[in-house]
Simulated assay, not measured.
Amino acid sequence: MMCARIMAGAAGVVISVGVALAPPAVAGTGEAPGTVTNQVELAGRFRVDGAATAARLTYWSRGPRGPMQSTGVVYVPPGPAPAGGWPIVAYAHGTTGIADQCAFTLEPRVYYLDSLYPELLRAGYAVVISDYVGLGTPGTHPYLDGPSQARSVIDGVRAARAVAPELSTRWAVLGQSQGAQAALFTAHLGPVDAPELQLRGAAATGPPSNLDLLLPLAGPWIPRLPLEKTPAYVAMLLAGLRASAPELDVDSYLTPIGEDALRVVETECVTEANARLADVPIGAMLARSLNDPALTSAAREMMRIPTDGYTIPLFVGQGVTDMEVPPPLTAKLVAELTASGTDLETHLYPGDHLGAARAALPDAVAFLRRVLDPV
C-alpha cells in the first residue's frame, strides 16, 4: 500500500426488470425528513452475522426539488448499548443504476452482507444503508446529485434513530464510488443540516470528482473512451437531469442513439446497461455540445464536490489502476482539499475501483475508530 488516502466503490449485479417511473411522492403535514412510513424486519439472506436486529425502512427525504421517499436498512449490534448508545456508520453505496429494481438493499450482495457490515458491527457500530431517493420509491433517482444523495444519507440516520432509540447521535459516513461523492457532500452539509446529530467524520473511496469540468467538453466528437462503464454513467446522469430539471430540455442534446441509451438505463441496472452500451461512443449519443451555461450550471450544483468549508475529518482513498474513477481526477480533488486546510487522510492502493475499496477497508475502519470512539 502507498500512503496517500483514497477509497473506491463498485456496483453489485442485480436482476433486470422493467418498471414504470412514478412521479415524486408529495410529503404531507408532519412528514418531516427522516419520518418512517414503513418498517419490515429482514430475514433470510439479508440477515447479517453479528446483527441483533435488521430492518428495512421507508422514510421521507429530500430530492432536488422537494420531498421524496427513500428506503434503507438498519443493522444493530447485539448486547446492551454502550453509554450514549451505539455509534452509527452510515454506508453510502456505489452505482447500481437508476431503475427502481436497482435499489441497493433489494438484492443480496455477498461482499457487504458477509464482510463489510459484519466488520463494522464487530467494531461496535450500528450500520445504516440508504438506497437514495427514487431508487425503489416514486420518482427518478437523480444520479450523482450530491446534495440529494447526502440528504438521503442524513435522513436515513434520522429514520434509523426513530425506530432504534438505542442508537447514538454520534455518527460517521463511509461511501464508495457514487457513495463516496455522497459521503463528501454529507460531510459538508451534515453538521448544519442535522445539528441534532454529531457527524464526526467521512470516509470516501474512489469518489467521482471534477466531472462537471469535463461536461462542457462533451459533444458529437467524443469517441469511445478506454474507461469502464462510461456510456452508462453518462446516460444515467442525463436521465437524472432530464427528470429533475425538465427546463433544460435534455432531449434536445440527444441523437436517436442517445434517446435509446437513456431508455436502457431507465429500465436496466448498471451491469446490464453497461453490457448493452459498452461499445457506444459518447459522441454517438449527443446531437450537439453540452457546453450550455444552463446545463453546466445545473451539473455543477449536482456534482462539484466542495473543496473547503469542512468542519470534520475526511478520509479519501484511490486505486491507482481505477478505470471508472481515473486517479488524476481524485488527485486534483485531494490537492484542493489539502490547499484549503481540510483535516484529510489519504491513501493510494494498487488496485482497480472495487479492489481498492476492499483493500482500503482496514484503513477506513481505523479512521472510523479515530473519529467515533471515545477518547
Rank of each mutant, 00 (worst) to 15 (best):
306 P>N: 11
309 G>A: 08
256 P>K: 11
288 R>S: 15
266 E>A: 13
342 T>H: 03
345 E>N: 03
331 A>E: 11
287 A>P: 07
274 N>R: 04
316 V>H: 01
303 M>N: 06
250 V>P: 03
282 I>G: 10
310 Y>N: 04
298 A>K: 14
329 L>R: 08
331 A>P: 00
301 E>D: 13
293 P>M: 14
258 G>L: 11
271 T>N: 08
260 D>V: 04
330 T>D: 03
338 T>N: 09
247 E>K: 07
256 P>W: 06
276 R>E: 08
271 T>V: 10
285 M>R: 05
333 L>A: 03
313 P>Q: 10
322 D>K: 09
263 R>T: 09
264 V>M: 13
275 A>L: 10
313 P>K: 07
304 R>K: 14
331 A>G: 06
275 A>H: 05
257 I>M: 15
250 V>F: 03
259 E>H: 12
297 S>L: 11
320 V>L: 15
278 A>V: 08
269 C>N: 06
337 L>N: 03
337 L>V: 09
342 T>C: 04
279 D>K: 10
315 F>S: 14
315 F>K: 00
243 A>C: 08
339 A>Y: 02
267 T>I: 04
243 A>E: 10
319 G>L: 11
317 G>I: 09
324 E>C: 02
345 E>P: 01
291 N>P: 02
320 V>I: 14
325 V>N: 01
263 R>L: 13
292 D>C: 07
268 E>P: 00
283 G>Y: 05
245 A>G: 00
258 G>H: 12
289 S>M: 05
312 I>M: 10
257 I>R: 15
322 D>R: 09
290 L>K: 00
305 I>E: 00
331 A>C: 02
285 M>D: 06
316 V>K: 00
322 D>F: 05
272 E>R: 10
311 T>R: 14
279 D>F: 12
277 L>A: 06
283 G>R: 10
343 D>L: 13
245 A>Y: 06
248 L>Y: 05
247 E>R: 11
267 T>K: 14
270 V>I: 15
322 D>P: 09
325 V>K: 01
318 Q>Y: 06
327 P>Q: 12
340 S>W: 06
332 K>Y: 00
322 D>V: 10
248 L>E: 12
343 D>R: 11
275 A>W: 04
306 P>I: 04
325 V>Q: 01
307 T>S: 08
